[in-house]
Simulated assay, not measured.
Amino acid sequence: MKAAVFVEPGKVEVKEVEKPKIDGENQAIIRVIRASVCGSDLWWFRGIADRESGSLIGHEAIGVVEEVSDDVTDIKPNDFVIVPFTHGCGHCVACINGFEGNCLNQKSGTNGGYQAEYMKYQPVNSGLVKIPGKPEDYTDDQLASLQILSDVMATGYHAALNAEVKPGYTVAVIGDGAVGLAGVIGAKLLGAEKIILLSHHDDRAQLGREFGATDIVSSRDEEAVKNVLSLTKENAGADAVLECVGAESAIEQAGQIARPGAVIGRVGVPHAEPKSNQLFWKNVGLRGGIASVTQPDKEVLLQAVLDGKINPGKVFTKSFDLDHIQDAYEAMSNRDAIKSLIIVNDK
């Protein structure tokens, strides 16, 4: 089968590799319909993080189950499924409490290989999310919105949940990439009345407004802080802040625009820890981390997509076939695309 592999920083390519096989319990072989490039993939593509040359890549997909191991009870062949980037066992303390991304029984090194014609996933019973019907029942736009549920939409929603967004809140979102834009959707789903998106790109700001942002702040640094505060009650700051970048400066800014007692929902993977004590002096909470996918998809996000209530697949501004995987990565690395969709197999 064809699969995308990492060659060296700045270079990925498609190679012929052996198709995966069932070789253990709670496993499924999936024919991938759609995959995508994640912002975190750019770490090793740009040489910021290490990755083994020749390793399979990608951690976001939807597809059709081809085969399952004998012990699988909840999924069967021909089921159309969301394939999460997480691998929660479903029964440990972390999973039971809704933090499947921190599963205590998750095996290391299980992510990779989603950008391929076929992939193996485990644990099936607690991880995969069934989509009603089959791929041909959906338009390409709907498939894009289903695909985004494998990671980014769940991550943006996770930011809003961790920030404890409540109906009527004023929410500020730092980061106008796919995760930040998904955060706007998440804040709206939780009832935010005012959503302030900090964005420096017109196309992303426009999409943010479409998703539910009521205000755009395009200024930077101290001016941005001033402008955000001016949009809040008594200039005190936002009731909740979604930090979807991960840079030290983003956490610092989040603390500056949060009102006393607010909570910052943090899903941008940190490059450095904040050094300021401002969060303490303002009684501002900081929480977040790796998102759960399975539970939010089953309880909220999948139905919202099926009902047409949200259309998060619009963050895919360019699409490619698997043979043009290098172009897909370059488009995101060069900021020519908000997010790259990979069309792997026909419906």
Results as ranks from 00 to 15, higher is better:
residue 186 G to A: 10
residue 241 V to P: 02
residue 230 S to D: 14
residue 248 E to L: 10
residue 224 A to E: 03
residue 129 V to E: 00
residue 31 R to K: 15
residue 19 K to Y: 08
residue 249 S to H: 09
residue 201 H to I: 08
residue 287 R to Q: 14
residue 136 E to V: 07
residue 135 P to G: 04
residue 11 K to S: 10
residue 10 G to L: 11
residue 39 G to S: 10
residue 139 T to M: 06
residue 49 A to Y: 12
residue 72 V to D: 01
residue 251 I to S: 05
residue 293 V to I: 14
residue 211 F to R: 00
residue 170 T to I: 08
residue 259 R to I: 00
residue 221 D to W: 01
residue 199 S to F: 05
residue 292 S to I: 03
residue 330 E to K: 13
residue 251 I to G: 00
residue 165 V to R: 04
residue 210 E to G: 14
residue 131 I to A: 03
residue 308 G to E: 14
residue 153 M to N: 09
residue 7 V to H: 14
residue 276 S to K: 09
residue 46 R to G: 03
residue 155 T to Y: 09
residue 14 V to G: 06
residue 283 N to Y: 03
residue 278 Q to S: 09
residue 217 V to G: 04
residue 144 A to T: 05
residue 108 S to A: 14
residue 100 E to G: 11
residue 111 N to L: 04
residue 133 G to E: 08
residue 268 G to A: 13
residue 231 L to Y: 11
residue 21 K to S: 10
residue 73 T to N: 06
residue 235 N to Q: 12
residue 126 S to L: 06
residue 206 Q to A: 12
residue 19 K to W: 05
residue 157 Y to L: 02
residue 316 F to Y: 14
residue 196 I to C: 00
residue 263 V to F: 08
residue 282 K to V: 08
residue 276 S to L: 09
residue 119 M to W: 06
residue 121 Y to K: 12
residue 336 D to N: 07
residue 258 A to M: 07
residue 82 I to V: 15
residue 321 D to I: 01
residue 34 R to L: 15
residue 225 V to Y: 03
residue 28 A to W: 09
residue 77 P to Y: 08
residue 231 L to V: 02
residue 181 L to H: 03
residue 320 F to P: 06
residue 201 H to W: 05
residue 219 S to E: 14
residue 344 V to M: 10
residue 156 G to P: 01
residue 260 P to N: 12
residue 46 R to L: 09
residue 280 F to Y: 14
residue 232 T to Y: 01
residue 35 A to D: 09
residue 251 I to F: 12
residue 197 L to I: 10
residue 46 R to K: 15
residue 220 R to A: 13
residue 64 V to N: 02
residue 307 D to Y: 10
residue 281 W to V: 14
residue 306 L to E: 04
residue 83 V to E: 02
residue 133 G to R: 07
residue 234 E to T: 08
residue 270 P to F: 10
residue 292 S to L: 00
residue 176 D to H: 07
residue 329 Y to A: 01
residue 48 I to C: 01
residue 105 N to W: 05
residue 7 V to Q: 08
residue 83 V to Y: 01
residue 12 V to E: 03
residue 166 K to Q: 12
residue 268 G to K: 07
residue 102 N to V: 04
residue 212 G to L: 00
residue 344 V to G: 11
residue 185 I to N: 00
residue 295 Q to L: 14
residue 327 D to H: 04
residue 238 A to K: 02
residue 315 V to H: 03
residue 164 E to P: 01
residue 54 G to K: 04
residue 73 T to I: 13
residue 137 D to C: 04
residue 314 K to I: 04
residue 178 A to D: 04
residue 107 K to F: 09
residue 147 Q to N: 12
residue 35 A to S: 15
residue 341 L to R: 11
residue 136 E to P: 00
residue 8 E to S: 13
residue 347 K to E: 15
residue 194 K to T: 13
residue 170 T to C: 09
residue 239 D to C: 02
residue 341 L to Q: 10
residue 345 N to Y: 11
residue 274 P to V: 08
residue 172 A to L: 07
residue 197 L to N: 03
